[in-house]
Simulated scan of single mutants.
Amino acid sequence: MPNTLIFVDLPADDPAAAARFYAEVFGWRDDHKPLGIYHRMVPGGMFANPDGTESLVGNLHVGIFNPANARPHPDPSGVEPRSIAAEGRKPRIWVLIGDDDTPERILSAAEERGATVLWRDHFWSTFNGLNHAFRDPWGNEIVLWGKAGDPPAVPEGYTRE
């Protein structure tokens, strides 16, 4: 059995505000543990079986933590660094666009809540995805991935690689 990825954490100096952002943009449930300290964003649903039915495995979760005192940690007062990294590349989070949603709605909702759209309308043939990206108000980069189909249906005007 391989080691299994179960969570990815995003830093935010206001975890409650970041949780509201993701709840409003993606419709994820905010499961704060405790409020303002650590928020587990629960996208809901289960991974699909090959036949399309739901498996018993829940979708991955995203955590939001405050870098001023990143929990969990053995030291109750936390340790340095206590700020969000500002320079250079950071990890990116990829989000699959649901069949009942659109990248336009997601990007618009994110932008209305303080995000910056980084790029839109790009086809990446390596993973057969229609991609778009934004930076949330805390500097985290989110890449949206849409299914292009088999064979891929790439809309006119998309850049390609």
Rank of each mutant, 00 (worst) to 15 (best):
F7K: 06
V79M: 01
N49A: 00
D121A: 04
T159C: 03
A16I: 08
V143E: 11
H32Y: 09
W119M: 05
R135E: 12
L56H: 11
N69Q: 13
I106T: 14
F26M: 11
V143C: 15
V8N: 01
K33F: 08
D99K: 15
A70Y: 02
E87S: 06
I97H: 08
G98C: 10
R71H: 04
P72Y: 05
A12P: 00
I97Q: 10
P15A: 10
L5T: 02
V25I: 11
H122V: 03
F21V: 09
P103N: 09
F21M: 07
G129P: 01
G45A: 12
G157H: 02
E87A: 02
E112H: 13
R120H: 03
H32T: 15
S108T: 15
R40M: 12
Y22K: 07
F21D: 14
S55W: 10
E87I: 00
V79T: 14
T53G: 01
E24D: 13
F21K: 07
H122Y: 02
D150G: 13
V25M: 10
P72W: 02
A70S: 02
E104Y: 07
V95R: 04
A153L: 01
I84S: 03
F26K: 07
M41R: 08
T4Y: 05
H132F: 08
R105I: 13
I142C: 12
G58T: 15
F123V: 04
R82D: 00
F123T: 03
L144V: 15
V42Q: 12
P15L: 08
E156I: 04
P72K: 07
D150F: 14
H32V: 15
T159N: 04
L118H: 02
M41Q: 14
E80Q: 10
A70I: 06
N128R: 05
T126W: 01
A148Y: 02
I37K: 09
P91M: 06
G45I: 15
I97S: 12
Y158G: 02
